[in-house]
Design a protein around this nucleic acid. Structure first.
Lengths: 146, 146
DNA sequence: CAGTATTCGTTGCACTTGCAACGGTGTCAA
DNA sequence: TTGACACCGTTGCAAGTGCAACGAATACTG
């Protein structure tokens, strides 16, 4: 019996499908604001959290938005250099930073958020009846031990 | 009316959820063979396609497994250097390469494939009743224009 | 044919990434 | 108070990445 190296169908392999779908989705979103605003995905996540939560530390962002702390640090530095946010030292604990949006940063978010919302709406329409199951599947993959 | 910068919940944002789920899944899989076999995700995809399709070109792999051609080229070079595959020139069209697994490469796949299959099984069990909808949602995200 | 255009895989380059290590700061117990 | 320890953000470094440009090979066109 020849040991056929049992064919493996990558295109039905969940980690692969997930990676491709995520990459396409991120790329589609990035297209919508990278060229116009020069914002990367990492910077986008930092902006969202700072915009939402006010004065946050690098560590806060790291924990909340699933980014390496060095990635957060560098994204924040780029955003600071671009004038979208400022870094202050936290008075309570001087190891911590307190990141805040500048006016320019708030203007930026006022432009970015509608784009992001529209994309979310588009995706929801696309997924339609599968949305609910899709979402709870993602929840499992985001939280369970793998 | 103060223009509240309408809160944006990143944790319910599909591109974000998808990215996190994909990253966790890929990381979990990579853990299972990176340390033991020293194989990256790109190399894994190349291996799978070469293992499946026999003598393939860089371009074939590029189109089939969603990898930049330079990424494929470099992954293939690493795999060649590690002795898992060989590059021959295609006799019909000498611009093309024909990648093939070596015996060592086939041995490697014989070890990797069961691990990959087991992980797929684990994921299917985890997703369970949502699996079908999840899969067709991924199909949409992989194929439709976004 | 000759000459141009196209395709293939590689590579140079600038940039990003992950990881470990670092200095600066705070905590806690002796 | 002092010393050991833990935590924060940054950075050095090696490796990986995307993109454009390249030489080699082939296809096309007149």
């Amino acid at each position: 019996m020849p040991q056929t190296p049992e064919p493996f169908d990558l295109s039905s392999y969940i980690p692969y499908r997930l990676a491709v779908a995520a990459e396409r989705t991120s790329a589609a979103l990035a297209r919508r604001y990278r060229e116009e605003f020069g914002i990367s995905v990492a910077e986008w996540r930092v902006l969202v959290h700072v915009s939402d939560a006010g004065a946050v530390s690098i560590r806060d962002i790291h924990q909340r938005v699933h980014l390496e702390k060095s990635k957060v640090s560098r994204a924040a530095s780029r955003l600071e250099e671009a004038g979208y946010l400022i870094k202050e030292v936290n008075g309570q604990d001087r190891r911590l930073l307190a990141l805040r949006l500048t006016d320019k940063g708030q203007d930026l978010m006022a432009q970015l958020l509608p784009i992001a919302q529209a994309f979310q709406t588009q995706l929801k329409q696309l997924l339609d009846s599968q949305l609910e199951a899709f979402d709870s599947a993602l929840q499992v993959l985001m939280e369970d031990d793998l």
